[in-house]
Design a protein around this nucleic acid. Sequence first.
DNA 1: TTGAAAGCGCTAACAG
DNA 2: CTGTTAGCGCTTTCAA
Lengths: 359, 359
Amino acid sequence: MNGGFLEGCRGSSFSRARRGAVTSRSPLTIKALAAQLGLAHSTVSRALAGHASISAETRARVQEIARELGYIPNSGARLLRMGHSPTVGLIVPNTTNEFYASVAQILAEECSERGRPLVLAVSEDDPQRELSVVQALLSTRPSALIVTLTGHPQRPVIEHLQGLPVVQFLRENRRIHAPAVTIDDVAGGRLAAEHLLELGHTRFGFLGVPEILSTGAARLRGFQSTLASRGIALPTTAVKLVRPDLHAGASAFAELLRTATPTAVFVASPQLAVGAAQVLHAQQVRVPGDLSVVAYGNSTWFKFFGQGLTAVSLPLQQLATAATSLLFRTLKHPGEEVGEGAMLAPLLVRRGSTALARD
Amino acid sequence: MNGGFLEGCRGSSFSRARRGAVTSRSPLTIKALAAQLGLAHSTVSRALAGHASISAETRARVQEIARELGYIPNSGARLLRMGHSPTVGLIVPNTTNEFYASVAQILAEECSERGRPLVLAVSEDDPQRELSVVQALLSTRPSALIVTLTGHPQRPVIEHLQGLPVVQFLRENRRIHAPAVTIDDVAGGRLAAEHLLELGHTRFGFLGVPEILSTGAARLRGFQSTLASRGIALPTTAVKLVRPDLHAGASAFAELLRTATPTAVFVASPQLAVGAAQVLHAQQVRVPGDLSVVAYGNSTWFKFFGQGLTAVSLPLQQLATAATSLLFRTLKHPGEEVGEGAMLAPLLVRRGSTALARD
DNA sequence: TTGAAAGCGCTAACAG
DNA sequence: CTGTTAGCGCTTTCAA
C-alpha cells in the first residue's frame, strides 16, 4: 500500500522522505503526514497528542511515521491556537555569575521534569535591557515567569507582569503583586558578623551592593545591627556599596582597605568577592594573618582561595525547589493567591580566611 | 475624539486600558489596536513594522498607542506567518561551566546587536537530552543554530540539522555538513608540553576527556607528540580520560598521582581542573614544589589557586566573533557554502603552579 | 473512531 | 496611503 512511500524514505533521511518535494526545505507538517497516511490532519493531530478516542492501530501508525520522518511540531502554530506556550520564562541578571548559573540549571531540571521547558533571559541587571527581554519573553506567551528583577525596573516591566503567574526569585519588589522566594539576607549578615565578633574583631569593613537591591540592604542591615548590638559602629568609610561587578568590586575593596584599615571584612556578594580576591592577591595581603575575610555565596573557587574562603553559603537546591513548587501551585490554581512565598536561611561555612584578631 | 478612551487609560495601566474588556487577561492584539484607532489591522501592522508606505502621522499615532497600551506582538503568529523565527539557537553542554557561560554571553551580545535574540539550550552532554533539546529548539524554527554537540549524537540529531544554517562550535562532527569554529587543541597540548619540557620535567601525567570528543583527542595528541619528539613516552597509567565532571576528575586525578607519580601534570579541561584542585587541596600537595600543574581554560579561580594556576588560555571573544560572523554570512547567502570555519590558537598563561623540575 | 471546518494573530499580495 | 482578504500549522468543536 505505502510500499512506494517506504522505498522513498529508505535510510530514513528526513529530507528525502518528503513525498513529491524531494528538494523542499520546508519542514514537515501535520497535513503532509496526513496525506502520506490517507487520513485527515485532525486525526493525525489527535493521534500525536495521544488522544483517547483514536484506535490503537491508527495511533501507532501515525506515531511511527512521525518518528520515522522526524516530524517536529511548529510551536508557533501551537501557541497561536492555544493562546500560550507551555514554557516557563526565567529572567536573571547574569549567567556568568556562578550562582545564577547553578540556580538556572536546577530550575531548568525541575521545570523540565514537569514537562515545561525553561526559557532563559538575561537582563545584565540593566533596566533598559530588562524591559527588552521581558518583551521578548512575553511575546512567546509563557505560562509562567520566574524573575529576579533589577533594583529599579522600568514602569512597563511592572505593568507587563501584572496579572501573570509570576514568582519573584531572590529579590523582592513590592510593586509587583507576586510571591517571592528569597534568602534571609539579614540572617546572612548576622551570621558573618557573629562569626567575626566571636573571633574578637573590632574594626570591620563591609563591601556590598547598593540598597536599591533589597538583598543588598538586608545583608548590610544584618551585619550592621549585629555589630551595633555589641556597641560597635560601622563608620561611613568602612561601608562600600557598588554594583556587583568585578572591577567596581576591586577598586572599592582597595579603597576600603586603605581608608578604613579594618581587621575583618564582609564581602557580601560573590561577584564582588572576585574583585576583592584580586586585590588581596595583587597586594599580597596575608589572609587571615593581616585580614579576616567572609564572603557570600557558594562559588567553587572559595574552596581554593588561599586556605579557603569562609563564606555565608546559600541553599541553592531548596531555593529552586521552593520557587518551582510555588510556581506550579499557582499554575494549578490560576487566579488564586497561593501562599506568601518563602524565605530560606543561609549557613556559615568556616574555611581558612578567618582567624582570631591579633590584639 | 478619543477623549473617552484616554480617560479610561489614565495612569497607562495596560490592563485597564483595554476598551470594553476591563477584566480581560488576554493580551492585546493588533486588531484591538486597530479598533481603538479606527484603522484596518493591516495598517497597524505596517505602521508597527515601520513600513515606508504609511503616512508619518498614522505611523506615529499607532506607535504611540501601542507603546501606551503595552502591545507585545505574538511571536507564534509571526512565526506561523513567516515560516521561521528571527532567533538563533545555541546548544551547549553546560552553562555552569564558566567557559560556556562566558561564551554564551558573548554570543548573545553579538547576535542581539544584529537584532537576533539568542535562545539557549543545554544538553548536559547527554545524547538523549541533546535530541530532546534539538527538537524543542527546532519546534521554534530558528533562523540558525550554533551547536556544540555531544561526542556521539543520536542519528536523528544529525538528520534534523541537515540543510539548516548551522555553525559548529568548539567541537567538530564530520557527519554534519556545517563549518566549525574550533580551538587549535593540538597547539594547546603542545604549548603545555613545551612549557613543562623547558622546565626540565621528564615524568608527566595527562588528565583529559575521552577521545570521542574531537577536542579531547587533539589535546592529548598535541601533548603526547611533543613529548615524543623529545624521546619521552607517556605510559598508559599516566593518561586518564574521563568525562568532564568534578567527581570523575577528582578520582581520576588522585589515581593518576598514585600510580604514575609524575612531576608535572597537564589537566586538559577546566571541569576536570576543579576536581584536580580539590585533590591537591585535600592531599596538601605542594604546587609547584612537589608537582607542576598546567590547566586548560580561563576559569576565574585559576588566578586564585595557590600562587595561581598556569593554564592554556582560550580566546573567548575571538571564538564568538568568528562563529557569529560565519553564521551571519551563511544567513546572508543562504544555501551557499561559506568558508571553512576557523581554528583559533590558544595561549599559555604562566602563573605560579609550574616550576623547574627538582632533579 | 474519524472527517470537515473554523479560527487563533499576523503579514503580504492585491485592490482601491 | 489604506482596506480587504487569504493563509501560515495547529487544536478543537461539531457532525457523521
